[in-house]
Amino acid sequence: MWIKILIIVVLFAVVAVMLRAQGSRNLALRRISIVVFTVAAAASAIFPDVWSTMADALGVGRGTDLLLYLFIMVTLAFIAATYLHFRSVEAQITQLARRIALDEAGFPAQPGPTSDQASTGDRAETARADDLGSGQPTG
């Protein structure tokens, strides 16, 4: 019984954390989980019975079952994290490729201050009209 609650709670917690964690917090969490994993792996090597004891306490049949459940949860977390990471890398590549494309194309009418348009999007736009005359070099 307890294991069901545990699985569901951990599942949602992992997804929630993965979805919200960004930057340094994300990295720190990843490092902490590596340490926790290492300690747990070491501990179960030294005290193999600990899994059975834990399984009993949680209401799971055997220690191996508990390991399987944990494995599935960790795998799901890994998939979620990888997916999010992939998405952000993709966004970066897009910005980079757009920058290259726009720089390569140039803009005949005004060769000057056009290069920080794509990345900053709408904010750069309001400032642009004033910048036009300055002819600031782009590269």
Binding site: A97, R98, L102, F107, A109, Q110, Q117, R128
Partner: peptide, 14 residues
């Protein structure tokens, strides 16, 4: 992505 690039390009034209 292509549309956004086109938008960014067009925005360069005052």
């Amino acid at each position: 992505a292509a549309l956004q690039t086109g938008f960014s390009y067009a925005l360069q034209d005052p």
